[in-house]
Amino acid sequence: MSIATRPPASAMTVATRTKLFNRICAGVLIAFALLWLVPLLWAVDTALKPNAETVNTTWAINDPTVAAFGRILRDTDIVQWFGASIFISTLTAVGTVLLASLAAFALSRIKFRYSNVVFWFVLAGIMIPSQVLIVPQFREMDSLGLLNTFWAVSLPQIPTAVAVFIFKQFFDGLPRELEEVARMDGAGWLRIYRRIIMPLARPAVSAVAIFAFVTSWNDLLWPLLVLSNPDTMTIPVGLATVQGTFGIRYADTMASAILGAIPLVAVFLLFQRNIVEGIAGSGLKG
């Protein structure tokens, strides 16, 4: 249609113009990306300086050293914090995946009365920000004698309505014939869940597990309230608590920040694709 009427020369100019435009786009984008990396690079740069050198605000390091990392590992409880964070986040991720997938399996694959009511009841949980519940939850943990335990941190993080929603959406997309055949062969529901549905749900499992892990790892307010012993603190609580004591030892401060960041950077590099697709998928559907 329009191709026929348009002279080829003009199409060329449009093409070159588009090319130029794309070049400019790339340039602006690269500038922003570099700007975004500066704080991280500056933290690494500072951590590799001796404390005395950090007052000179330059990128150059006269006397590079990793001594700051050694001091943080030796003088703070950061190793215990790692242990606490890994335990709590793993417990939360496993618990979230297990409980949410079981519930979503019932809501998606098993026919029962009032399944809609149950679904809406669970969905209502999405509306409640966890921060609204900190006061009564604290009282609850206190009366259960769970303060300063990892259970106090993890238990309220496990029932995640969004996770049920993500699993249900995924299960709904799997063909019904799969388990109808298995039921004909006499397989029970639990067997269908374990042997047929869950193996197919790997993408949903990894998305939910990674999110539960990262969210739990990064949470500050709730663990800050329930963990007050220095040796049971999580990484964020520990860092937030000791940051005032570093004073002007900026290399040490940055070393502690980098050590606190390393596990998550590792998780991110390993699961970059799952994380990004998880956000995109759940976000657009939610």
Partner: peptide, 28 residues
């Protein structure tokens, strides 16, 4: 319908959900 197996699958989530989200919400 399959009320009993469904309840079994839902129970762990609903229990923790009631104990640590809905319960504290109402108590608050």
């Amino acid at each position: 319908g399959y009320g009993l197996p469904a309840a079994g699958f839902l129970a762990p989530f609903l229990l923790v959900y009631l104990l640590f989200i809905i319960g504290p919400g109402l108590y608050g």
